[in-house]
């Protein structure tokens, strides 16, 4: 039963991997400077970030200035995770106190 399940999951993984490797046929060559990801939005950031935000590090400029709402949402995610961890682990300690 267990070996059977492992065989099925291995077959599914191999088929998915083969399909994904077939899909890389259409991707641009690795490290191509003229690929679509490198030629549309980022030239504007590279040329104008220092003029507009006075920050030499472009990653910091984009993270905290152009896309600061993104960072705000990220901190909301961290806050939710920490609150849920706090409540999940706090219930255990209460139960142990009741038992003792």
């Amino acid at each position: 039963m267990r070996n059977w399940f492992k065989l099925i999951s291995m077959a599914a993984v191999i088929i998915t991997g083969a399909l994904l490797i077939y899909g890389t046929h259409d991707m641009p060559a690795w490290g191509d400077p003229d690929s679509p990801a490198n030629s549309h939005v980022s030239p504007r950031y590279i040329t104008e970030a220092t003029k507009k935000t006075a920050t030499p590090n472009i990653v910091s400029a984009v993270l905290a200035d152009y896309r600061s709402y993104d960072t705000l949402g990220e901190s909301a995610v961290i806050f939710t995770a920490s609150i849920s961890c706090f409540f999940l682990l706090r219930r255990i300690r209460n139960k142990e106190d009741h038992n003792d």
Binding site: V41, S42, I46, V59, R67
Partner: peptide, 12 residues
């Protein structure tokens, strides 16, 4: 020059 610097957007 744009070709002198890596693309910062995926890093962010």
């Amino acid at each position: 020059q744009v070709s002198d610097y890596l693309n910062p957007l995926p890093h962010v």
